[in-house]
Simulated assay, not measured.
Amino acid sequence: MTWSALILAGSRPGATDPVATYAGVSHKALIRLEGATLLARVAAAVRAAGATRVAVSASDPAVVVEAMRLGLEVLPPASGPSASVAAALTVLGTPLLVTTADHALLDGAWIARFLADVPTDADVATLLARRDVVEAAAPATRRTWLRFADGDWSGCNLFWLATPEAALAIGLWSQVEADRKRPWRIVWRLGPALLLRYLFGRLTLAAAVRHLGRRAGVTTAVVPSPFGLAAIDVDKPADLDLVRTLIGS
């Protein structure tokens, strides 16, 4: 199977990234670990997993220069991650793997396992890791957990857009993006019956995602990751300290 990958490395207009400031670089995609930038590490991981075409959504001049050095296509970012993915879909098509430039520990083997575990009928799939799996791999991590009947979950910044129908989920993605730290608001979009199931601890994450997909007209799937470190990205200075500790850099 031939597939492409998109690495999100956009910048919020006028905003200062505290992680980049902490590391002394213009953009966190340029932070170096073990001699390579985060962008280089992520690009190497997706290529190792089999991506034949790799693009980065970026506007920071230094990130663009680094992307060109790495032989990546450069696509202009849109108003946010979901809009950037929508724009990239028109260029790269499907199947498309989407990840982020701050996925510092990303490993090609994690991606390969994710793709192998995606149900064959899924238009869209996302990788998540259970809290016990994450904390076993990185006890010191502090995450925002999605609490459902089947456990507490953390996103792994890996999304698989398998079919052209996946484009229908972009609007849904933008809504989830806005409410990602407030799961009850995501569930509210499914109606009061499912919200009550959530509030009483009877709604599983897989069921919620499946229902959200139906609302968008696509088949969606949650894929559990056996790799706890797949949930570790670099959102805060403390995350960068943790990553440096984990790799001994």
Rank of each mutant, 00 (worst) to 15 (best):
V19H: 01
P13H: 10
A67W: 07
D17E: 12
L39T: 08
A49D: 09
A9C: 12
A9N: 11
G14Y: 03
S59E: 15
S11A: 13
A49Y: 06
P18G: 09
A43S: 15
H27L: 04
V54R: 06
S59F: 03
A29T: 10
H27K: 08
E34A: 14
S11V: 02
R69W: 01
S57Q: 11
P13C: 08
L39W: 10
A67E: 09
R12H: 05
A29C: 08
A29R: 07
R41S: 09
A45Q: 09
S57H: 10
T21L: 01
R32M: 03
A48T: 10
M68G: 10
S57K: 11
A51H: 11
P13E: 11
E66R: 10
V46K: 06
G24T: 00
G50T: 08
A20L: 01
L70P: 12
A58L: 12
P76V: 07
A15E: 15
S59I: 09
V42D: 02
G50D: 03
A51T: 12
M68D: 09
A23C: 05
M68C: 07
A48D: 15
M68W: 07
P61A: 11
R12E: 14
P76K: 06
I7F: 04
V25N: 02
R69Y: 00
A23W: 01
D60F: 02
E73H: 08
A40S: 14
R32H: 11
L39I: 09
V65A: 15
A36P: 01
A40T: 04
Y22C: 01
A9W: 09
R32G: 01
S79F: 05
A51W: 11
T16Q: 04
L33C: 07
T21A: 08
G14P: 05
L8D: 06
S26P: 01
S11E: 14
P76L: 14
D60Y: 02
L70W: 13
D17P: 03
L72F: 12
V56R: 07
G71Y: 12
A55L: 11
A58V: 13
R53A: 14
L8Q: 07
T37I: 03
A67P: 05
A67Q: 07
A78W: 07
V46N: 08
V64M: 13
A29W: 09
S79P: 00
V46S: 06
Y22T: 01
A40N: 10
L39R: 04
